[in-house]
Design a protein around this nucleic acid. Structure first.
Lengths: 129, 129
DNA sequence: TGGATAGAAAACCAGAAGGTTATGAAACTA
DNA sequence: TAGTTTCATAACCTTCTGGTTTTCTATCCA
């Protein structure tokens, strides 16, 4: 458990990244882009959604730094920029130990609680879940 | 690059998890909870925000499965449930190879660009970023 | 020159998010 | 019993989100 209690990365960056990832359409777009560059039309094709809606999603992804856009004639090919995903993963990594040990911890905690309940006068105790 | 093109986990689960993580207050609450159980009052203390606002945040976290709540007298101690964080991390892990190679890729690209610029006079094309 | 194609931008809308204050409900405490 | 503490719920407000349709701009092509 090596949590700092503070966020190392720019909070706004994490806000934008996690918010961008909270939409299934945008996650699907990122998944598609991991296979290589794609134009807006190509990205829009799988979805039953208007083209401007996709453009909006792309703008969200761009503002989060998750994609960059080039220019080829009329097309604006999009490319994945994975750096913010690394930052997000770094944040989540702080909890890795926790969920890996969570069963151990749960056992320990239940043990403690039971001992407390056995030794204390205070009756009703933490019925978590 | 071992992307499937499909999401392995329940999309709604990822929606809820990432949406929950998109708020700095909620991330701070999770960070606090990683240090151990805490009551609503304790969780609210660091923030200049009303108690109902914190309760709302906790409800969001609970619906995302990121916390569970017990009961001790009037108190409802909250406990971190890290499983959804593992799921989110698993999703992000699909991109790990991509961002790890990105520096290599960037170096390659910069090398190419520099060589082109050295050999060329001017040619507008693919100005990503 | 005059379309067609690719995509962005504008205007609009319904619903969700995030905050507030006020009130209510349990359970402890004097 | 009355009061306090802890927390949730309700009602309300403002802003953000995610979608729409319509229109505009830029570039290719015949």
């Amino acid at each position: 458990m090596k949590l700092t209690g503070y966020e190392l990365a720019d909070p706004h960056q994490l806000d934008a990244t996690f918010a961008a990832l909270a939409d299934p359409t945008r996650r699907a777009i990122l998944t598609r882009l991991a296979a290589g560059e794609a134009t807006v039309r190509e990205l829009a094709a799988p979805f039953s959604m208007s083209q401007p809606a996709i453009s909006k999603h792309l703008k969200v992804l761009e503002r989060a730094g998750l994609i960059s856009r080039g220019r080829q004639a009329q097309r604006r090919p999009c490319r994945l920029r994975a750096e913010p995903l690394r930052v997000a993963t770094d944040w989540l990594a702080n909890y890795r130990d926790f969920w890996e040990e969570s069963y151990q911890r749960l056992d320990q905690l239940l043990g403690e609680v039971q001992r407390q309940q056995a030794a204390e006068i205070e009756r009703p105790g933490g019925n978590h879940e």
